[in-house]
């Protein structure tokens, strides 16, 4: 049968930063082709197709419905594959190869992680799951 794509509404203007992305205008409707866990979603809008940040979209049906998974305060062990320096005060700065605990996997690609006493957002694309249990 036909593939029904999920529709989302654009909540803020977005200017693309690479040729595989598309520009968005507030109120545009887009259809989602693929959701990458790193927070980039491949979508089509009219005749355009490309990657857009999931954080700029809300579901067309029931925007109040939370789509994110529940937080897991026990934490899942991940290792950082790239260093990242916090650009906002709710983010964490981490070096490559640090073991941290993921406590909330947000669809926008900025997971909530814990390192010691510190908690903050970190790009999920710079994290790799470790095989070990705590």
């Amino acid at each position: 049968g036909p593939i029904i794509l999920e529709s989302y509404r654009v909540i803020s203007d977005y200017s693309k930063t690479s040729k595989y992305e598309i520009n968005l205008l507030t109120g545009d409707l887009v259809e989602i082709v693929e959701k990458s866990p790193n927070g980039w979603w491949f979508c089509q809008c009219d005749t355009k197709r490309g990657w857009v940040p999931a954080s700029y979209l809300e579901p067309l049906d029931g925007p109040e419905e939370p789509e994110d998974a529940d937080p897991n305060y026990a934490g899942e062990l991940y290792i950082t594959t790239q260093a990242y320096k916090a650009a906002q005060d709710d983010e964490l700065t981490l070096e490559t190869g640090e073991t941290i605990e993921v406590i909330h996997k947000l669809l926008d690609g900025w997971w909530v992680v814990r390192k010691g006493e510190e908690t903050g957002h970190f790009p999920s694309m710079f994290l790799h799951k470790t095989g070990e249990k705590k």
Binding site: I11, S18, W51, W110
Partner: peptide, 22 residues
């Protein structure tokens, strides 16, 4: 065909979304 997603982190949610979540 679908290319690989960008290899840089996506932007943080716009202010509109942050207010909604708060």
């Amino acid at each position: 065909s679908i290319k690989l997603p960008p290899q840089n982190p996506p932007p943080r949610p716009p202010a509109e979304m942050r207010r909604k979540r708060a």
